[in-house]
Design a protein around this nucleic acid. Sequence first.
DNA 1: AGGCGCTTGTGAACGAACGCACAAAGTGAG
DNA 2: CTCACTTTGTGCGTTCGTTCACAAGCGCCT
Lengths: 220, 220
Amino acid sequence: MARLPIYLRALTTLAEEAVTTVSSEELASAAGVNSAKLRKDLSYLGSYGTRGVGYDVDYLVYQVSRELGLTQDWPVVIVGLGHLGHALANYGGFASRGFAIRALVDADAATVGTEIAGLRVRHLDGLEEEVRKHGIAIGVIATPAPVAQEICERLVAAGVSSILNFAPVVLVVPDEVEVRKVDMSIELQILAFHEQRKLGPERHGRLNDAVAELADAVST
Amino acid sequence: MARLPIYLRALTTLAEEAVTTVSSEELASAAGVNSAKLRKDLSYLGSYGTRGVGYDVDYLVYQVSRELGLTQDWPVVIVGLGHLGHALANYGGFASRGFAIRALVDADAATVGTEIAGLRVRHLDGLEEEVRKHGIAIGVIATPAPVAQEICERLVAAGVSSILNFAPVVLVVPDEVEVRKVDMSIELQILAFHEQRKLGPERHGRLNDAVAELADAVST
DNA sequence: AGGCGCTTGTGAACGAACGCACAAAGTGAG
DNA sequence: CTCACTTTGTGCGTTCGTTCACAAGCGCCT
């Protein structure tokens, strides 16, 4: 389930606060979900709670981590080190959550050779070699949109089977490759949509179009 | 609907290629969705297609933009100008999609006063004033996690009603405020989950736990 | 003008996910 | 030991979203 990472985050926060036991109600509110849903999600992993008591935080952290495959470190390559790639490479949240950035690759001659987050940026030509050398299964695409599809195909050909795409394009991949997309302007557009809803609900939907047409007809 | 921005992206791409008309089938495959779903989504906006022909690209771009509230420019404030905030401020995709970054705010004295993407970074103290001055309704939080909730509350108090949150925390807001969250490590964790599935499906679920327990019992 | 082929818009069936509400199971006090 | 209280795990009804399949509508060709 896609909610497990959220639970894991809430659980690790609790663990840091030295909380040893948590009820589904508490954890659910920390994660922002319904408590019944949370219990159902967790029961899918097995019965790790104690009735009348709750869940043992440390034990649950371990179980969820295991289910997510975070008991091992996943090597990751970042392709494209513009502002975003730079930010990603320096983001500390990865290392502590089961991911190890092992290679940085870029096409720009000015960027190649520089050191970012303790790693030297290599030219795009060496992409396949880096992937094979580190046994990388997860690739992050932070390139401009026009080259994203090409990079994607090279990653897949080199053996990468999961891709996190920040470029604003729909990537075409074989069925067995998993792609997730993060697109900031799409998120903003969704917010704008709701903003507009708040401002003028009367200006929306097909009903309003009918009204608008009527107004047009009258004014003509 | 949350898919409208994806359609809009596909449509603008088509418009740039001087395509004048598109069928639901074509547009659906460009957006990566089922064609019936796409037609239903578009029909929600009204009947903008022509049977036997398809949709007029330019007209549809306008209608979708209008529905999303992108016919006007939304002023935006970015709080926190670390690597990520920097990347966001410089991201060109916003301006062309109906958003105008109007204010940059940070708490770090070394960052305050510097110019990023043509805007001077102001100290966090001036947050409320900037929001009011520009009539900002959308705020972007790119701060460290520990201060995100506090920033969020200040934004809301100043009048912001939509928030895009990059900090890895669950923000608590009044019901009328819309929050969207972008969390890169959660996306990676979901990929890791699927990766692990591919590698060893036999190592998962409650069945496997039962098997593991059995193995334990036998070896004891 | 009429018929043919194509594409939209939508009714209806299907399936997944959500949440209520409760039984089962554990704890602790008396 | 029993009873009252707490919290998990889950059966079940409901709601939401997706997809199929087809009638309605439009343009073009004859």
